[in-house]
Simulated assay, not measured.
Amino acid sequence: MNIAFSPCPNDTFVFHAWVHGRIPGAPPLDVTYADINITNHWAAEGKGPEVQKISFAALPWVLKDYALIPCGGALGRGCGPLVLTSSTTTDPKALSGKRIAVPSERSTAYLLFRLWASQNVPGGIGEIVVMPFHEIMPAVRDKKIDAGLVIHEARFTYQNYGLNMMRDLGSWWEEDTQLPIPLGAIIAHRSLEQNAIANWIRASVEYAWSHPNESKTYIMEHAQELSTEVAQAHIDLYVNSFTADLGEEGFAAIESLLVRAAKERLVPEFDLSLLRK
């Protein structure tokens, strides 16, 4: 079976057991390691492997052809994207008319930023600049951009660039909705047996939790020069009970995000019922 997911520690932790043949009855995996911005577009264009990790924000473009698998993704609390600047101000009015770097226009981070900005930035922001997430913090530090939206391990390293957090958008979302933040989703082409895939992924998650040391070498091989401490912090933040099962609270969070985004015309109209089919 072909699959694409990121080289980030949470994904390699989750899929280690399946990739390494530890799940009885699961087919061998042929893995493509790709940034989520790439898989978001692959899925929308009908390209790439039949199982992929994408952003929940990209679901409206793909739900006709791909089913949401209710496990294996990233959804939680205290793990949202950050708005960073090189100044010390926390007043969002400072972003009015400014250039903002984002890692993707089809990411949950981007949707959260636009929803937050619509409420808090008078007159709106200026230009959105899409760039690879690892380039954002240096660009903000060097004042090539006015502010940056960062994700993943940047939560733990932005101080190293002399940057300051204007707003934790995860905290804003949780305060506004009392729901967790839907970040990364696992999808499978609708021609595949979805229940079987969910069972194999869930078994891989459970194996990872039961044998945490087995995956460390694999994780660090793909961790993009992260320290073991940062990699573990990444796993602790993004792998949780929602990774094993979205549950009703997880689905409520996804629906809330996408319905709000559709009302703001940030995503196309879509059939909400397909989230659970």
Rank of each mutant, 00 (worst) to 15 (best):
F5Q: 03
C8I: 08
D11E: 10
T12H: 03
T12Y: 00
F15S: 04
W18L: 03
H20E: 14
R22E: 14
P24L: 06
L29N: 04
D30L: 01
Y33Q: 12
I38F: 04
I38A: 12
H41Q: 14
A44E: 15
K47F: 12
G48H: 07
K53F: 07
I54F: 04
I54N: 02
P60H: 08
P60M: 09
W61A: 15
Y66I: 06
I69N: 10
C71V: 01
C71L: 01
A74S: 15
T89C: 09
L95F: 13
G97M: 10
E105H: 04
R106K: 08
R106V: 11
S107K: 00
L111K: 05
L115Q: 04
A117W: 12
Q119T: 08
G124W: 15
V130R: 05
F133I: 09
E135N: 13
E135Q: 14
M137Y: 03
L149H: 04
L149N: 11
V150C: 12
I151D: 09
Q159L: 08
Q159F: 09
N164W: 15
R167Y: 08
D168E: 05
L169V: 04
S171P: 02
D176R: 13
P182W: 00
A185M: 05
E193Q: 14
E193L: 02
A196E: 15
I201H: 09
R202T: 10
A203E: 15
V205S: 02
E206R: 06
A208Y: 00
T217M: 03
T217Q: 11
T217H: 01
Y218L: 09
M220T: 09
M220C: 08
A223L: 06
Q224P: 02
E225F: 05
L226V: 03
S227L: 06
H234P: 02
D236N: 14
L237H: 00
N240K: 06
S241V: 13
F242W: 03
T243F: 02
T243M: 06
D245A: 11
E248K: 13
E255Y: 08
A261W: 03
R265W: 10
L266Q: 10
D271N: 10
S273N: 05
L275Q: 11
L275K: 14
